[in-house]
């Protein structure tokens, strides 16, 4: 067989090299961890590693190379007539077993920039945190889960701007959480719920109004259902989610499942200004 070049000895030379190849050190750790935690109920690892690595890389790049997002900016509304509000897709990935879509917001052009810097950092931190939490669930073997986070300008009445961050997590069922940042763009003020009122009585006043609205809704419309058991609405928290709408009215919001069954979704209540009149610091933002 003149065609042949090699002998079994040649194969043995290559085999020796082969046996010297070492596995990465983390392999043993991973195997031991998996074996000793098997009661933790793994639900499967069907995630191609390269995709996870690529995910991490894409995300790091995304966070650091902001200019790269110029092309992916989706909307550039002016807020408060001067500042710009941008959102961009920080990270997006869909596989057979999970889907993740994380947007980040960026505000620019707001006066000296201290407030916008703080907010932009907060948004970036939030994106990173969501991403890390989600990926650790993936690594722990969770399957069929999804995470979606996006930012929108909920309201802009020329005086105040409210930015909404909606985070939806899906597993067997979905769960939506809302957070708002309300700003006085012209004066670079971050508006907290408490700051709108002269004292802490706003908690009781607003809670009482919401309770009345819940009762009224439930008796008027059988489709409106709020919890009546131990999860029944009792009172708002001091820093309850809120925004100021385009008509300069205060709107208080609740996450899905917080005070009503899931099919009600997230719920919100517009609080009539008359109910607040006596405790508002001024009529500047809410009237």
């Amino acid at each position: 067989m003149s065609n042949n070049l090699y002998s079994k000895k040649d194969l043995e030379v290559i085999a020796r090299e082969w046996r010297h190849a070492k596995a990465p050190e983390k392999l043993e750790r991973m195997m031991i961890d998996m074996a000793t935690q098997k009661q933790k109920k793994f639900t499967g690892f069907r995630i191609a590693g390269t995709s996870v690595a690529a995910v991490a890389l894409a995300f790091v790049l995304g966070l650091n190379v902001s200019s790269a997002f110029a092309a992916t900016m989706r909307n550039i509304p002016l807020i408060g007539s001067a500042a710009k509000f941008l959102t961009f897709r920080e990270y997006e990935k869909k596989t057979d077993t999970y889907a993740v879509q994380i947007d980040t917001a960026k505000i620019s052009g707001m006066g000296n920039g201290a407030l916008e810097t703080a907010l932009n950092e907060k948004y970036m931190e939030q994106s990173k945190r969501l991403y890390n939490e989600f990926m650790s669930k993936i690594k722990a073997g969770d399957e069929n889960i999804g995470l979606f986070s996006n930012y929108t300008v909920k309201a802009d009445n020329g005086v105040t701007v409210s930015i909404e961050n909606a985070v939806t997590e899906t597993a067997a069922s979905g769960y939506e959480k809302l957070a708002y940042d309300t700003l006085d763009v012209k004066n670079e003020r971050y508006i907290t719920l408490k700051s709108l009122f002269v004292d802490d009585s706003y908690i009781d006043v607003i809670s009482k109004n919401i309770s009345e609205q819940i009762s009224a809704q439930m008796s008027a419309d059988a489709a409106k259902v709020y919890f009546t058991n131990e999860n029944k609405f009792k009172a708002i928290s001091g820093d309850q989610a809120f925004y100021i709408n385009n008509d300069n009215k205060l709107v208080v919001a609740f996450d899905e499942y917080a005070i009503a069954p899931g099919y009600m979704g997230t719920v919100e209540f517009m609080i009539p200004t008359e109910a607040l009149r006596n405790i508002l610091v001024s009529g500047e933002y809410i009237h």
Binding site: K26, M30, M31, M34, G141
Partner: peptide, 19 residues
């Protein structure tokens, strides 16, 4: 022919074995 994919295969194999 790459470390990450090989580790993934090991992880999935281990998972199957445990199950």
């Amino acid at each position: 022919k790459n470390e990450q994919d090989a580790l993934d295969i090991m992880q999935e194999s281990m998972y199957k074995a445990l199950k």
